[in-house]
């Protein structure tokens, strides 16, 4: 896994893949599975209470990652199924699609997981997630008042995020 945006302060946002407002929700987890941020823009269906929902989402991503690491048809040494892996270790995944939504996923070298749920017809959002990570670094990680591991309450980050997600999705 490569580091992105090492020296650039704010690279220009990637070109939008589709037009229209079709982002459903977004999650940010840290490496311990704590949900740092949850935002929803358009979510008519809630099957669980928020806490359970976040846990289920983290569990899904964790298990899918161990599944892809085990299934990887390229490498021959894959270890055992279900053994926790460090960020960037083993074969990961970047998105999955169902008939009602598409989930794009990115894990940074520090174990921050960014999840964006959009319309199923959305294109590749890898660059967009990197841009969102850059927003996180600029507005949250560099904020002296922010304690790592606590939920994100930075107004500037929220506005920048809302604005950007509206522009891409």
């Amino acid at each position: 896994m490569q580091f992105f945006g090492g020296s650039e302060i704010s690279p220009s946002p990637p070109v939008p893949t589709t037009a229209g407002n079709n982002a459903h929700m977004m999650y940010v987890f840290n490496r311990n599975g704590v949900c740092l941020l949850y935002r929803e823009w358009n979510r008519p269906l809630h099957t669980l209470n928020p806490q359970q929902d976040h846990k289920l989402m983290f569990g899904l991503l964790f298990s899918l990652k161990s599944l892809t690491a085990k299934m990887d048809p390229i490498s021959s040494d894959k270890g055992n199924l279900g053994v926790p892996q460090l960020p960037g270790q083993g074969c990961s995944f970047h998105s999955f699609r169902t008939n009602t939504y598409k989930l794009s996923f990115m894990e940074t070298p520090s174990g921050i997981k960014i999840i964006l749920v959009t319309n199923p017809r959305t294109g590749d959002l890898r660059e967009s997630l990197k841009y969102i990570y850059n927003l996180y670094v600029e507005y949250v990680a560099k904020n002296p008042l922010y304690t790592p591991g606590t939920s994100i309450r930075c107004e500037l980050f929220s506005t920048a995020l809302d604005q950007y997600v509206r522009s891409i999705a």
Partner: peptide, 8 residues
């Protein structure tokens, strides 16, 4: 329906 991993 579709899972896109790094290598498959």
């Amino acid at each position: 329906e579709l899972l896109e991993a790094d290598t498959f």
